[in-house]
Design a protein around this nucleic acid. Structure first.
Lengths: 199, 199
DNA sequence: ATGACAGGTCAATGAACGTTCATGTGGTGA
DNA sequence: TCACCACATGAACGTTCATTGACCTGTCAT
């Protein structure tokens, strides 16, 4: 039942947002009454925290695996990172979007935890970008501009692209999560000016 | 005072979300009491609607201007579109983010209006992408994949990138809105495989 | 059989919510 | 000067909120 509450709550937070979702709605979706939630979680906030924690742990684990699978070539690493992150935010778009939007409703200390997790993810991308740049695999200098594009800006651009796929992706749509992940992986490589990673 | 209410409400909706922002908080931020809001707007929802309407009108106008400034070359068009959209979502990130996230709390008919506006914006980008592809200015075929990257997927990737800049951009940060818009413009061109638009 | 216990119900709590309305007031055109 | 109007007030309205606690019930190990 604890698990059931987590899943139904995630779905409702995804649809209506945390503050607009009442404890009664969550428990009704599980077929029980409101008071029963407090046999499993201390508060409504605690439910949100549990959802976010699970999501962040899983997404970080997927990224670490992708990083390994990418080997030591930064372009292949980037391709795998983008693929994993896109997969996560499409296949588990409910938790993914909630994690990205609802952390503000957590108490400060737990909100910080979430922000730290987001920062760690960004650092993974930034490191791969830096490695690819110094290895000469990425081309990120705008001929029209005086100074080069900053690495953190590129990382944010790619991250926003992948993460926000969860906002519009529909599993019943024309393109599958796996296809989208492949396309995004290709687009990200073009974005950083990488040649084909098969070469 | 009507204008004041709109601005303060937008800021609070940006910080806490629509349902978590009470009428009392909005009016307190304006230095008046709760009842006074109803001299200017019929309901809290109407305030949100007014914010979203203004934001969408302005953003569509900026995009149309950018489209004109881009002339008839699709790559220059795309560069201008990305620049304008990024500028809008950084310089007016408060309204921009609210428009992107809080429309669900509107009654169905007005929520539809917002979705229609978002669809129109996406169509502008898609048309430019289609024109650039048939003119041979963009390269969007993944050699590792059987089928080409879809135009609507590319449009969404670029849109998410620009729109979400409003989520992390800080005007007091190291990079200005205009610099970011330039960098994003360059990144978008690389993403679609365009050569330098100066050629 | 019995006791413990996990997990449900039900009623009640005080606080906060959006909204209404009668009332007060300062400025403005006639 | 006076009527008017725009706008703010503050008290109420009914509803909903998250949370609590007393109670019930089924399932176990002993």
């Amino acid at each position: 039942m604890s698990r059931r509450i987590l899943d139904e709550a995630a779905r409702l937070f995804y649809e209506d947002g945390f503050p607009a979702t009442s404890v009664r709605k969550i428990t009704a979706a599980c077929g029980v009454t409101a008071g029963s939630l407090y046999n499993h979680y201390g508060s409504k906030e605690e439910v949100l925290y549990a959802i976010l924690k699970r999501a962040h742990e899983d997404s970080e684990r997927m990224l670490e695996e992708g990083l390994l699978r990418g080997g030591d070539r930064a372009d292949r690493q980037l391709a795998e990172l983008v693929r994993e992150l896109t997969l996560f935010h499409t296949e588990r778009r409910v938790e993914g979007l909630v994690a990205r939007t609802e952390w503000r409703h957590l108490p400060p200390e737990q909100a910080r935890e979430v922000l730290d997790a987001q920062r760690r993810v960004r650092r993974i991308f930034e490191r791969t970008l830096e490695r690819g740049l110094s290895a000469g695999r990425f081309r990120l200098s705008d001929p029209r501009s005086t100074r080069p594009v900053q690495v953190d800006v590129v990382a944010k651009a790619i991250l926003d692209m992948c993460i926000n796929a969860g906002q519009w992706f529909r599993p019943e749509g024309a393109v599958s999560a796996r296809e989208l992940a492949d396309q995004y992986s290709f687009l990200a490589l073009q974005l950083v000016g990488a040649g084909s990673p098969d070469a």
